[in-house]
Design a protein around this nucleic acid. Sequence first.
DNA 1: CTTGTGCTTGCATAATTATACGACTATTTG
DNA 2: CAAATAGTCGTATAATTATGCAAGCACAAG
Lengths: 149, 149
Amino acid sequence: MISKDERQFAIKEIIGAGAVRSQDGLRKLLKKRGASVTQATLSRDLREIGAVWVNSHDGGRYTLQSAEELPLTSFGSQVISIVANETMVVVHTLSGGAGIIAEIIDRLKSSNIIGTVAGDNTVLVVPRSARRTPEVIEFLKTTLIKGIH
Amino acid sequence: MISKDERQFAIKEIIGAGAVRSQDGLRKLLKKRGASVTQATLSRDLREIGAVWVNSHDGGRYTLQSAEELPLTSFGSQVISIVANETMVVVHTLSGGAGIIAEIIDRLKSSNIIGTVAGDNTVLVVPRSARRTPEVIEFLKTTLIKGIH
DNA sequence: CTTGTGCTTGCATAATTATACGACTATTTG
DNA sequence: CAAATAGTCGTATAATTATGCAAGCACAAG
């Protein structure tokens, strides 16, 4: 029996090799490695590992996120706290960490966030509307602190 | 009536803004801009412009290919938008794409263009005269956007 | 003009992917 | 231990995306 983590690791290997063009194709490759799961599970796995579907002339394939768009994992530890008032969210980071965190937030392209400004250890995050502030807080906490993987 | 090139140009702008989560959502946004097409056409468009589907915690979204993963032949895909005021044209590109686009514009040696300045994702193009601005816009749109794929 | 070729698109539908739900397991709490 | 909670996954199916086909159009060749 292969664990979920092992399976997702195998998926990364297989996708990294560059030959996956459908979830069902991936399912068959995994079966050869002893991981028999359904397409439904793979749909969930691909979302969890942040897989990317790239369209191209010949139809497209899955890839992994490039290093540039990936750094959520390693930089979450920069974040010290996330606090807010009615109209603005403030993310405190380790000294010098604000730039990278702001960049990460920008790349998440949340529709609830208009923009960010970074100082040295503080990032101001501007919600689309004051009403969205709670959602933005929740989103940032989840993304930057908790569910990193 | 909007041409296919104009539509695909608009699609890049919209996707670049980061809020497209389905082809049908994109269809509705395009409709507001006067481009009424079916989901089938958008499926084809997205393949032709090499759009990318990125899975994430919140379900995923479309993005454009980053400079790194683009074939060298398709610089035009770097261009997201071309806008201008009376005296200046601004070409907005994907992150990191301004340098190469400015270089291309320089090499075209248009007599209507005095010079260019590139930032990271923005190129300023200076027309020879304010009166030439419309021609420069047209020239850039034709050269950088049409007939690329 | 007529025919032929290539391109674009909508329609209908096939193919693929996402998800609601329930079953099952492991873990925690009282 | 019993109950509550959280996590995983298959089944069935909903939702979304891709595509075969034919129509329409522009344009070139004869």
